[in-house]
Amino acid sequence: MNDATQRQLADAYRDALLEDTLPFWLQHGVDHKFGGVITSLDAAGNVIDTDKGVWQQCRFAWLLGELHNNLKADETWLRVAQRCMDFVDRNCFDPLDGRLWFQVTRTGEPLRKRRYAFSESFAAIAYGELAQATGDDLAAQKAERLFRRFLNHHLFSPEAKSKFTETRPMRSLGFPMIGIATAQQLRDSINYPGADDCIDRLIDLIRRFHIREDLEVVLENVGVDGQVLDHFDGRLLNPGHAIECSWFLMQEGQHRGDRDLQQLGCRMLDWMWQRGWDDDHGGLFSFVDLSGKPVSEYWHDMKFWWPHCEAVIATLMAYQLTGDARYARWYRQVHDWAHDHFADPERGEWFGYLHHDGTVSSQLKGNLWKGPFHLPRMQLICSQLLGDRR
C-alpha cells in the first residue's frame, strides 16, 4: 500500500465508476419516457421487468447528485437525478398518509408499501443533494421532513413501528445505522441542524443494545433491553450489515477526531469479518448464527454483492486509520475476491448473486434490491480515501 499502489487503486476505482458502472445505468436503466430509472436488468442491460423500486429512484438520484456536488459538475447527471425525484414527487407518495411506496409500476401506479420507512430515508438524502446542487429550499425542507418521519416511524416516537409484536418485541440494527448514514449525508449536503446530536443518540442505541464486547459480536436483532434472544431471529448475524455500520462509525470518528469511536468501528469489523468470511471458498456469507447453529434462511451461504462493497470500504478505511497491516491484507483479500467473482468485464457492472463457491447464481445486474448504489458508492469512496485528485 505504498503511494504508487494507492494512486493506481484510486485511478482504478474512479475509472470503474465513470467508465463502467455509471455508463451501464445511464445507458440501460434511465427511463426517458416516464422518468426515473428501471433497475431490473439482465447481464447485457436488457430490461426484464419495468416495475420501479422507490429505494432505487432515490438512491440513483442521491448518487448522481453526490457525484455532481463532489466529483465534478455535470448537467447530465443533475438532470437525470432531478427526473428521478420528479418521478417520486408525482407518483411515489401515498396521498392517504404521506408515506412513500416501496414499489410502483413503470408509469408510477402504486403496487406495494412496506412497514419500514427506508424509502423516506433514501428520499431524504436524494433531496439533500438536489438542494445542495440547485439551492432549492423546498428540496432541503423535503429532506428534513422525510428524515424526521423516518426517525419518528422507527426510533424516536412512542408510536415507533416495528415488525415484531409485543409477544417478543425486538430492536433491529438497520434503523439506527441507516439513521446515522442519513444524518451524515444531510449534514454534508444541507447542514442539517441537530445532525450531531441525532448521530449521538443513534450511536448510543447501537452501543447499548447491539454491540456485545463480551461476545465480540454485533447483533442484528435483540430484545428491547439488548438481551440475546435464543431464537432464529435473535441469533441471526448479518456480517455485511454490521461491517457497513462499522465504517459509518469509523467515518464519524474521523470527522470528530474521536479515536474511541474509530476503534469501536474497527472492533466491529474485526468481529464480523472473523464470523462472516468463508475460509473455504472466499467471500462473505449472507448470514451466520451467533451460536454456530444452522440458519433458517436458505440463502445464508450465498455471496451477495453489497456486503463485499461494504467490506472493501471498511477494510480500507480501517487500514488508513490504524496503519495495521492486517487490514491491508483483508482489504486486498476482499477487493480481489469481489472483483474476480462479481465483476463482468465484458458487459459492465457486477452480478449481484453468487453461489457459496463464488460461481454466478443469477444473470441479474439489477432488481428491486440491486441498483446503482452500493457498487458506485464503494468506487467513489475508495477513490476518495486513496487520494484521487484528478
Rank of each mutant, 00 (worst) to 15 (best):
D3G: 10
A4E: 15
T5G: 09
T5S: 12
Q6E: 09
L9V: 02
A10Y: 08
D11K: 13
Y13S: 07
E19D: 14
E19I: 05
L22M: 12
F24R: 04
W25V: 07
L26N: 04
L26E: 06
Q27W: 08
G29M: 02
V30D: 03
V30S: 02
V30Q: 05
K33R: 13
F34H: 14
S40I: 01
L41H: 03
I48L: 09
D51F: 11
Q56W: 10
Q56E: 09
Q57D: 04
G65T: 08
L71F: 14
A73M: 08
D74I: 13
E75R: 11
T76Y: 05
W77S: 03
L78H: 01
A81R: 01
Q82F: 11
Q82A: 11
R83H: 12
D86K: 04
F87N: 01
V88T: 06
D89Y: 08
R90A: 15
C92E: 02
C92L: 06
C92P: 03
Q103F: 07
R106T: 09
T107K: 09
K113P: 00
R114T: 09
Y116V: 13
Y116Q: 15
A117S: 14
F118E: 03
A123W: 01
A131P: 00
Q141L: 05
Q141S: 05
A143S: 14
E144I: 15
L146F: 06
F147D: 01
R148I: 13
F150D: 02
F150C: 03
H154M: 05
L155R: 07
L155C: 08
F156A: 09
S157P: 04
E159A: 12
E159K: 14
E166H: 08
M170D: 02
L173M: 14
F175S: 01
P176C: 13
I180K: 00
T182N: 04
T182G: 05
T182I: 08
L186F: 02
R187W: 04
D188R: 14
L205G: 00
R207F: 06
E213C: 06
E216H: 15
V218H: 01
V222P: 00
Q227P: 02
H231W: 08
D233L: 09
G234R: 07
G234E: 06
R235F: 07
L237T: 05
H241T: 12
A242I: 04
S246P: 02
W247F: 11
L249N: 00
M250V: 02
D258C: 10
Q262R: 04
Q263H: 10
C266Y: 01
W271K: 00
M272A: 09
Q274M: 07
Q274T: 11
R275N: 13
W277K: 07
G282L: 10
G283K: 04
G283N: 09
F287S: 03
G292K: 13
V295R: 01
V295A: 00
S296A: 09
H300K: 11
D301K: 10
W306K: 05
P307C: 07
H308N: 12
C309L: 05
E310M: 07
V312E: 07
A314I: 08
T315K: 04
M317G: 02
A318C: 15
G323H: 09
A328H: 13
Y331R: 03
H335Q: 14
A343C: 06
A343W: 07
E349Q: 04
Y353H: 11
L354A: 11
G358S: 12
T359Q: 12
G366K: 05
L368W: 08
L368H: 11
G371S: 10
P372C: 11
P376M: 14
L380H: 10
S383I: 00
S383N: 07
R389K: 14
R390T: 12
